[in-house]
């Protein structure tokens, strides 16, 4: 059966210029220029990454911290541009990365949802149609019309995740979103992800928790210092990851 790739990553490399003593100012820039100094570092966050994700597949992305997982997601989402290589993706992409960070505390949950909807390309009407689902999933009830200032951190994260997961995109990229929330809510999120997968959404899940990756994903890739160390079936990759983590100790 031919699988049309939903995402194709070819020889993807990403280089960053990191400023050693941020922030860069005009003053510092001129000083560096005049004295021939350089306070920046160029490093490769991703090196020649190659993989394919079929439509409706769930791929797990695991790796140690700073292995390039979030960078990879950001490039696929279109937030960063590749330095070398290409990315092909088909369909609408919804991203859930540090999502709650942009909430405006003076606004109500509902108003924030409208704003987030607009950012992800939904019209006000589309967002309005989704709000009942989101409200129900997040279990926030009437709190939706209270200013975000009154929410606990857990509530805010629940709102953020409920939004991302009810988005009905063709491709959903999730970055360690499941690191928050209590066990019951996390269970709900995992079930929802599986449901979303059944509906045909392609899923890319970055996580530090092997059990969650194992539950939702069929394949996985392991990133190490920007390149793919291993790619394949979820259980293989996870056991390799675990032994790597164990070896460090």
């Amino acid at each position: 059966m031919p699988y049309e790739p939903a995402i194709r990553v070819e020889e993807l490399s990403k280089e960053f210029t990191v400023i050693l003593e941020p922030p860069l100012t005009l003053q510092k820039g001129l000083y560096n220029f005049v004295y021939g100094k350089n306070n920046s570092l160029r490093l490769w966050a991703l090196r020649e990454v190659n993989f394919l994700v079929s439509k409706g597949e769930a791929l797990g992305i695991i790796g140690a911290n700073a292995s390039g997982k979030t960078t990879l997601l950001r490039i696929i989402a279109g937030i960063y541009q590749p330095t070398r290589g290409k990315i092909f993706s088909s369909g609408k992409i919804a991203v859930s990365l540090e999502l709650g960070a942009g909430f405006i505390l003076e606004f109500t949950g509902r108003e924030n949802l409208y704003l987030y909807g607009a950012i992800f390309g939904l019209t006000r009407r589309d967002t309005a149609l989704k709000i009942p689902q989101i409200q129900e999933f997040s279990e926030l009830g009437d709190f939706l019309d209270a200013p975000l200032r009154q929410y606990s951190v857990g509530m805010r994260m629940r709102l953020a995740f409920s939004f991302a997961v009810n988005f009905a995109a063709d491709i959903l990229l999730v970055d360690e979103m499941l690191a928050v929330g209590d066990t019951a809510f996390r269970r709900k999120c995992l079930d929802k992800l599986k449901e979303v997968k059944k509906q045909g959404t392609t899923l890319l899940l970055v996580s530090h928790r092997p059990e969650e990756v194992a539950e939702v994903c069929t394949r996985a890739i392991m990133l190490h210092k920007g390149s793919i160390h291993l790619q394949g079936n979820v259980s293989e990759v996870l056991s390799a990851y675990e032994s790597m983590q164990g070896a460090v100790k």
Binding site: A77, I79, V95, E98, G102, I119
Partner: peptide
């Protein structure tokens, strides 16, 4: 000021 949006969503 809107760094969190720019960094986490493509728009």
């Amino acid at each position: 000021e809107d760094a969190h949006f720019v960094k986490n969503a493509a728009f």
